[in-house]
Design a binder for these strands. Structure first.
Lengths: 232, 232
DNA sequence: GCAGTTCTTACGGACCGCTGACGGATGCCG
DNA sequence: CGGCATCCGTCAGCGGTCCGTAAGAACTGC
């Protein structure tokens, strides 16, 4: 099959390793680019934006960990690290920097190709699911990732607690919660003054209700607590 | 249509060939320059920086191969070679020197025009993909590969950290990040003083915000961290 | 009308982010 | 090798925001 399933950038200073890796990855259907040092890796990455990077830890000049960090600054590209046996600490550091997998030298090229395939599949699934969710209700729109909210088009300035509270309500519509439960699930407290909740609900109402004296969205459930009803 | 789709420099010592080629290329919408020998070709190339060069192999004085080689020293301009039948070796040499296509004499002028169009299209696609990606936002332009940035045309002098931070923000617009997360993804630290982030954001703001006391691009998200909003 | 519950307002302190300054590290130039 | 400039991380002070609490008023259900 001539169809490529992705572009892979291989970074290793050993020509022999590069060639072997190249052959196997190409057999697996990948388009392969090779570079021998960190600077070239970063430059080539910027030019070609490969789908995955195979990165040797030991590199002349900028080392593998630094390359990984710099890549991570501007890309979520999956990285597979090549480490020598016994570089335990480096491996851990690498994974902390966001490497997605690692292979210890000496490695079987077939194994590397398999890992590449598996990491790539994993990251593609993750990417498909990662778009920032938008909560909406009537004229209310909430971007959880951006931590901002709009009511009828104009932006609301909500404090941290208000925002968290609103998000909780929006993701749990139609269910009544006691103040104690809200304290637990929004504040993370297991005990505390319930009036804290009361006051915050009031302040939130001032911002999301058209008439805060006659609330439509956040309903009071007498003797129990509060419930979020749709604003539609 | 009067619009030109590119400038082509034609190098051939035969006046008749030049005129025929010129007519067809102009019909195809190109702006055409004609020269008759190698020295003129190099000089004119330097003056006009055409988008493509049509180059006869047999030239008085500096021959075609040498011209091609000299061009390649300082430009990636696409070259289409004109070769006589049987100049097999020259053709191979030409391609090795970086010619992008060749046409054997006698040739149909229409075929030449088609080849020119096709080479030009190919090279433009390649250029678009290989030029280092530019991040832009409002008056802000960032060349990631070159590690340089401009605001309203004048170059910014950013330090390494500032640059990385800016690139991270530009590639993750509209999402709020905690200082801890920035520390992890830009600094590569898993723990550390959060004020490090605060201070760097401040320094970056001084350089990319019109009024750093009233930031527009890098918004503070109270109790959380920072978010990059468009500067538009 | 009474008791329990919720609403409203006010306030002080805690928290947070901004700022300016400093010392150490690093790299460059003489 | 020594001096200088740059960059970086830390810190303390300050000013502003936010939060939790308390206390009185209003309301609900009985």
């Amino acid at each position: 099959m001539g169809e490529t399933t992705g572009r892979v950038l291989v970074v290793d200073d050993d020509v022999t390793v590069r060639d072997v890796v190249r052959r196997y990855l190409e057999l697996a259907g990948y388009e392969v680019e090779l570079v021998g040092d960190g600077e070239s890796a970063l430059r080539r990455f910027a030019e070609r934006e490969p789908d995955l990077v195979v990165l040797d830890l030991m590199l002349p000049g900028v080392d593998g960990l630094e390359v990984c960090r710099r890549l991570r600054v501007r890309s979520a590209v999956p990285v597979v690290m090549l480490t020598a046996l016994g570089e335990e600490e480096d491996r851990i550091a690498g994974l902390q920097l966001g490497a997605d997998d690692y292979v210890t030298k000496p490695f079987s090229p077939r194994e590397l190709a398999l890992r590449v395939t598996s990491v790539l599949r994993r990251s593609r699934v993750a990417a498909a699911r990662s778009s920032s969710p938008m909560l909406t209700d009537g004229g209310l729109r909430v971007d959880v990732g951006a931590r901002s909210a709009w009511l009828d088009g104009r932006e609301l300035s909500l404090t941290t607690r208000e925002f968290d509270l609103l998000v909780f309500f929006l993701t749990n519509r139609g269910t009544a919660f006691s103040r104690t439960e809200l304290l637990s699930r929004v504040w993370g407290w297991e005990f505390g003054d319930q009036s804290t909740v009361t006051v915050h609900v009031r302040r939130l109402r001032e911002k999301v209700e058209t008439d805060s004296a006659r609330p439509v969205r956040i309903a009071t459930v007498w003797g129990v607590g509060y419930r979020y009803d749709g604003g539609a």
